[in-house]
């Protein structure tokens, strides 16, 4: 069974891109995305999600619209996924006292919380994982999503590479489906990479936008690496 990437959305300082190269130069941070759809319209079950979770829901909406996929899997690759909620909760404890932290904020200190919020918002009932391999996390997440779909673990997977609330915010989200084309193959590991080249999920977005065959390798200073062989769909 083959699997391929059928759609993507990305956010970086240059702007938002949905299934096409980014146009223009949107300014500001993801949290200041003025055109973001209101949460009440796209996530009826939302209570008070942390901004890092809310923004993933909004980007997923940009990619999926009202489409829902039975048994959809979710993989989130992130290095600093919960750093911002961690520090906010600690600041709350420092300010109010240890017994007076807010339960709703504490929930979002888990690195899985953002992916969990996505699953609730879009009704995804397949497998869910947050993966960390340093700065190779995003590419590794794509590799695992491709393997899940190719091996029949789920019919489709929504894969996110997200670093939010940090200096250089970047989010890339991919929809992976069965038999969508020749697709891509992935691998990941710790050391001895096949070659040295920088790459990440945003590079993958650019390669997809260009629809060109690519080999993407992401290497982390700690020694993690992830690699993807991409082939343009026929």
């Amino acid at each position: 069974m083959s699997a391929g990437i059928t759609g993507f959305v990305s956010w970086a300082s240059g702007g938002i891109a949905v299934n096409a190269p980014a146009r223009g130069a949107a300014k500001g941070r993801l949290g200041e995305w003025a055109e973001a759809p209101p949460l009440s319209k796209i996530h009826p079950r939302a209570r008070r999600p942390h901004p890092t979770s809310r923004q993933l829901v909004q980007l997923a909406n940009a990619l999926l619209g009202e489409r829902r996929i039975e048994g959809l899997g979710l993989v989130l690759g992130t290095a600093a996924g919960c750093a911002q909620p961690d520090r906010e909760f600690q600041a709350e404890l420092d300010a109010k006292g240890w017994p007076l932290g807010g339960p709703s904020l504490f929930v979002y200190t888990l690195p899985t919380a953002a992916a969990g919020e996505l699953s609730i918002a879009i009704g995804a009932t397949g497998p869910l994982l947050t993966v960390n391999a340093g700065t190779a996390s995003g590419l590794l997440a794509v590799a695992r999503g491709l393997e899940w779909v190719a091996t029949g673990r789920c019919p489709a997977a929504l894969v996110c590479s997200a670093e939010q609330g940090v200096e250089n915010e970047q989010v890339a989200m991919f929809l992976i489906e069965r038999e969508a084309g020749r697709g891509a193959t992935g691998n990941s590991g710790f050391a001895d990479p096949p070659s040295a080249a920088a790459g990440d999920a945003l590079e993958l977005t650019r390669a997809l936008a260009a629809a060109a065959p690519s080999r993407l390798i992401s290497i982390d200073p700690l020694g993690y690496w992830a690699a993807l062989e991409l082939e343009a769909a026929r």
Binding site: L110, T112, V131, N132, A133, L140, S188
Partner: peptide, 14 residues
């Protein structure tokens, strides 16, 4: 370990 190496997050199911 120089093969697949990663940290998994799945809350209490990690």
């Amino acid at each position: 370990a120089r093969g697949p190496v990663r940290t998994l997050g799945a809350a209490c199911a990690s």
